[in-house]
Nucleic acid binder design. Structure first.
Lengths: 189, 189
DNA sequence: GAGCTAAGTCAACAGCTGATTACATAGACC
DNA sequence: GGTCTATGTAATCAGCTGTTGACTTAGCTC
């Protein structure tokens, strides 16, 4: 991967590189199928550094997951509500394609109690409360979580299972249907 | 299937019990976090029987996954289209709650190439073609896969992540919103 | 350039996992 | 009752995994 700092020894840069590799492999394979040796190899360092810098493999994953999801959260706070379905879809699919960790993508991958709990908290902050408060009306939290579930389902079926039509569709087509499905959620009646 | 006499030695019954335990643990923990010893312990037999009856752990999982999904497929073929969103949702959530393997639930759990490929084929048969043909119109396959994605996303967020509002909602509330979201998919304009 | 500290490597560990082999026995058949 | 085979167990193997501690070395300070 790209090594921005040309310095041979740079603890901060190495730490960050390990986090990025962890996010990438976590999204691609999941926690249990990613070994510390895999992560270290992607960065080009020795696996022992993971324990030196993070204490354990799980702590590395926890920190890697905590770093994700911020962009969706910001989008929900700032974007006009009618643009949210398309915006969230784009953000999640982009995060998935570029290998960045996203709570939505990880949802389909993780089977670790600690990481699952972190994702649950992030979803609650971002959707149940964050989007729910903006939506208002009956079942605001439920409606917000349903929008999240739709986008998560699309990401999982595209990236993990490889559903044909979902993969073949270009983004605008996909966004068109997502907008239509989301309309009943955005209305607060 | 009929469970005959409580014989102490019954290869067919033992084989079936191993398949059931495999489906249960596969849905609960995923493939990599389920060991042959776990599966055998749930049945109460020695782990060596897995290799005797199925050749390998992976072959057991493949056979276990192939057995699931039939009920959704039948539903799609026989139920009136307007009842499908609620029906599929119920079927997937029931399968998830009872620990039966369902392609939708497994989608959130599996990180094994062979199993993923089987699920992809099942989704294609059941939704892309099965439901797509019934829907007709533009993007029929895509619209069918989007309904699947919605239900999969709901199942994953409920069972794997534990999203609060999705778990707290009773089925009728959930079904109400799913129906509303699915309306734009069922129409063929 | 000598010395020190942080950054990184190396080798080995203990535990777990899937698989294999040799062995034990229930239960049908004669 | 004796025998034979399918059914099941126990012990073990080889490979992988996360973690650890001892060692090496780059690069700054004086």
């Amino acid at each position: 991967m790209a090594q921005p700092a040309p310095r041979r020894r740079d603890a901060a840069a190495t730490r960050e590189a390990l986090l990025q590799a962890a996010r990438h492999l976590l999204a691609e394979r999941g926690a249990t199928q990613t070994t510390t040796r895999d992560i270290a190899a992607e960065v080009g360092v020795n696996q022992a550094l993971i324990n030196r810098y993070f204490g354990s493999k799980e702590s590395l994953f926890v920190e890697a997951v905590r770093g994700g999801g911020a962009s969706v959260s910001e989008l929900i706070a700032t974007s006009p509500i009618e643009h949210l379905p398309e915006g969230i879809l784009r953000e999640v699919l982009d995060a998935s394609a570029s290998g960045r960790g996203s709570s939505a993508l990880l949802a389909g991958v993780v089977n670790n109690d600690t990481i699952t709990e972190i994702i649950r908290e992030m979803v609650e902050d971002t959707f149940t409360r964050g989007l729910g408060d903006r939506l208002g009306g009956d079942d605001a939290g439920l409606r917000a979580e349903l929008l999240n579930a739709l986008v998560v389902g699309i990401a999982v079926m595209r990236e993990k299972i490889g559903s044909q039509a979902l993969r073949a569709a270009d983004f605008d087509d996909l966004a068109k249907y997502v907008r239509r499905m989301a309309v009943p959620l955005l209305a607060d009646d």
